[in-house]
Amino acid sequence: MQCTESQTLFTDFADNTLGREELHALTDHLLGCPACALEWREFQQTLSLVHSLESQPPPADLLPGIHLKLAQRGMFDRVWALVEALNFSLSIPAAAAIFTIAMLAGFLLKTAPQEPPGVLPSAPPPSQISALRLGEVPTPKRQPIAPSAMFAVSHNGGRQNENLEPLAQTVLATHPTMDNEAHRLLSPDMHVLIADTDHDSQIALFQEMLHRNWQIHRMTSNLYLVHLPQTGLEDFHELIGQHHFALMPAAAAQARFGSSKKVLTAAIYFQ
């Protein structure tokens, strides 16, 4: 056996998969050729070193990050679907502009700072509370919602947060997912901005929701996602109607909003 040929058999030799004749030929060669014997020893040492490498554990936020990316891409798909639904041909500059805006939005979402976890939203300033107590009528009005509030959607990201408040932990532990439609992962159907409320009212609100078996996910200290059946929409309006709120889209105030969906997702943002 030639030296070059012997080295082509090293992997099979290490795996113990050589045929009888090849095995004899190789071992005979290694016994009579110190250079190849040294090569074989080094080959074994190399394998031993590589096999002793340990893999690294994946980062804890790998899975929540996947859901965030899915949500961001879902938004892009929706924008594109909207453009297609408008049924007019875009000029190249217009298409480029839309693409740039979508990319910029994605970048902003990715770099938006996460709020530190807290317990429940802090109480509003006394001046706002007194304004309500004086009989101010809550008027639904469109208010901008922070990008992180609109798309910070993670299907089970909350499960990995050890600082979850007890209320949300109870929800996650006791209420299984109501259904698994893909669109629920992508973005909320409704955005509710509750401007003036106190700690006790928030707890009461969530307890009412829990009582109805709705699923609540705590995303940040003042953002919650609520999954409710479409049939519970009127009930939902009634509950949030007790607070000073803004609702988007406006169509969500209609009883038949999202009637083709079994489950609606509401992002509730406490200001």
């Binding site: 893999s55 690294q56 994946p58 980062p59 089970n156 997912t177 698994n180 893909a182």
Partner: peptide, 19 residues
């Protein structure tokens, strides 16, 4: 349509894919 199954797939393979 079971999205928890997707999460479990990720959990199952994440170490290998990450490495």
């Amino acid at each position: 349509g079971d999205h928890q199954a997707f999460n479990r797939l990720v959990t199952l393979y994440q170490r290998k894919i990450y490495n």
